[in-house]
Design a protein around this nucleic acid. Structure first.
Length: 579
DNA sequence: GCCGTTTTCGGCCCGACTGTTTTCAGTCG
């Protein structure tokens, strides 16, 4: 029997569990951090660890040394890890779940376990409700109440919220805060500013001489459900609709260091502080501190990086995924920007499940600065969307021609399709029909749970079809509900490189597919990328900022994004196909 | 446990907030 090798995310999860267990056990914190760093590296590799292991390259993964490489090898070969099994005999695995309770960390978990025999969430809740926690050293009635509140919060807490929901909520809050007395400026920070696909808490930061009236306004916002913590310069609240937000306030002359600090990531900040130390400085959210105790204030982020001898690093890169090294050696990429995009190459109209006519879509795209628009309605076979039949494609072409004539040179329209890759691997229109279209996006929507070899072959067959230009939302993931298909991504990427087919970064915040990790890998391999909105309505075109953000997180430069090309170059690329 | 054009051993960031404490530990980011 052949066993499927563990995936990177499964390996990462195992190492996070090891770190959790070691933390409860009270191990050396740096050993724990080493396991977490290795887990993060695995999650952001873009290649299967199994493939790297075959090349004996595990130790080249950042944060993976001899000991962890051996553990990865053992896990890949046997599916088990003796080290973890021994650890679980010392520390009950159920304790890991307790760490999810807010305000409960490894020290308290160890305390509850050793003193009260608590090994599960229900044990903990029972002990708290029976008033047994308050008897423990360092615990009191308030701490006990906090544990109960934390368990309740866990029950109603959703997972991290999608970027597309956090972003508009944050914009509203910023507008609110800018009305508060004495606010000089207000910005988003944290994972939202880094544009991660999902957001935990919304982090906000304000510059104001006197923090008190701002904090006051924040915690008295009409939608605040409860105040999680409240201080002079930092407060945290839970809003209705399960949104949680955190606010920092610093005087304007310290805004630069504060914004860097609040933006993170934590790992990026650690790298910056290490760098500061080599220059005899200590970096905090307030300032740089010289050894003689004198302060160096930074009102702008650029000043912070300048002191460290670095160019300003875009927030999307601040994950400690090589950006500090790149900045040190002058190798930061020129990242894609919204203004680089001329084309949107994946759009729907009322010819399938979109709400606007071709003319209305063209006007909406033009109004947003696009000069090229591809009409790519679903192929007729994807039942629910009511796309055009082969016959109707001819009528659609006539309508596109008419709109093109009306709008003249202000926008170039392409007739395309989002052709369904059917469950059996065939495309939903015959090749001779596809060959007559200007552009072909091929996508998976059905039978996404096929076994890896089958669905991988299905996608690769589409990639190798000479009529296909772009693979739309390649994995089919939906945030937060659905994992992507179980694809052999290395094989998919290799096929795309061979065929010169572009892979999409779908901008819809429920997709962001390719994600930042695979988009980075694809870009490294020189595969063309397409940043598209997949718009079904005018306002969907505005979602392009999330696709651009994902590309930026993937270190993508404009040259490799086909949407940045002028019409002549794009047309030439599309015509490279044998028709 | 990882890592090294200052190191193969000895480092590995920093502070706010809370609650339980009379000076600090735990949690969080």
């Amino acid at each position: 029997m052949t066993r499927e090798k563990l995936s990177n995310s499964e390996l990462a999860e195992i190492f996070q569990t090891i770190a959790d267990l070691l933390e409860i056990k009270g191990e050396n914190i740096y050993k724990i951090l080493a396991y977490r760093k290795a887990a993060d590296s695995l999650d952001n590799l873009g290649r299967e660890a199994a493939d790297i292991a075959r090349e004996n390259g595990l130790a080249s993964i950042p944060g993976v040394g001899k000991a962890i490489a051996e553990k990865i090898t053992e896990l890949l070969n046997t599916g088990k890890l003796e080290f973890l099994e021994k650890l679980e005999q010392e520390v009950p695995a159920g304790l890991v779940g307790l760490l999810k309770v807010p305000d409960v960390g490894p020290k308290k978990v160890a305390l509850f376990w050793k003193e009260l025999g608590v090994t599960s969430l229900s044990d903990l809740e029972a002990a708290a409700r029976q008033g047994r926690l308050r008897t423990l050293p360092g615990m009191g009635e308030k701490s006990e109440a906090k544990v109960i509140a934390g368990i309740e919060a866990l029950g109603r807490r959703t997972d991290r919220m999608p970027l597309g929901r956090a972003w508009p909520a944050a914009q509203e809050l910023l507008g609110f805060l800018r009305q508060a007395p004495g606010v000089v400026r207000a910005d988003v920070a944290g994972s939202l500013r880094r544009m991660r696909s999902t957001i935990g808490d919304v982090d906000l930061i304000v510059a104001a001489k006197d923090p008190r009236p701002v904090m006051d306004a924040f915690i008295h916002h009409p939608d605040v459900l409860r105040i999680v913590s409240q201080g002079d310069i930092k407060s945290s609240v839970e809003f209705t609709h399960r949104l949680r937000a955190q606010l920092w306030v610093q005087p304007p002359e310290r805004f630069g260091t504060a914004l860097v600090y609040a933006t993170g990531s934590k790992d990026h900040n650690v790298r910056l502080r290490e760098l500061a130390l080599t220059k005899g400085l200590s970096l905090s959210d307030k300032s740089f501190l010289n050894k003689d105790g004198s302060e160096l204030l930074c009102a702008e982020e650029t000043e912070v990086y300048d002191v460290l001898g670095l160019p300003w690093i875009p927030p999307e890169l601040r994950e400690d995924h090589g950006e500090v090294e790149a900045a040190l050696t002058g190798k930061l990429p020129r990242l894609l920007e919204r203004s680089d995009l001329r084309a949107d190459l994946h759009d729907h109209t009322n010819w399938s499940d979109g709400v606007l006519s071709i003319r209305e879509m063209a006007l909406a795209a033009k109004a947003r600065g696009f000069s090229i628009l591809a009409i790519t309605d679903h192929s007729g076979g994807l039942g629910v969307t009511g796309g055009p039949t082969i016959e109707q494609l001819k009528d659609q072409r006539l309508e596109i021609d008419a709109v093109q004539q009306e709008m003249a040179d202000s926008i170039r329209l392409l007739q395309g399709t989002e052709v369904e890759i059917k469950a059996d691997g065939a495309l939903d229109y015959p090749d001779e029909v596809l060959a007559q279209l200007d552009i072909v996006v091929a996508s998976l929507h059905v039978s996404l749970r096929q076994p890896r070899p089958q669905i991988t072959k299905r996608l690769i067959d589409a990639i190798r079809n000479p009529n296909v230009d772009i693979i739309g939302h390649p994995t089919g993931r939906l945030i937060p509900d659905r994992e992507g298909a179980d694809l052999d991504m290395e094989a998919v990427l290799s096929a795309a490189r061979e065929s010169g087919v572009a892979l999409e970064i779908n901008s819809h915040p429920a997709r962001l597919d390719l994600d930042d990790v695979y988009a980075r890998r694809a870009a490294e391999m020189g595969i063309p990328l397409a940043v598209n909105t997949d718009a079904h309505a005018a306002s969907d075109l505005d979602l392009v900022i999330f696709g651009v953000a994902t590309a930026r997180r993937a270190w993508v430069s404009p040259e490799i994004v086909i949407n940045t090309w002028d019409y002549g170059r794009l047309r030439g690329w599309l015509d490279r196909r044998i028709k």
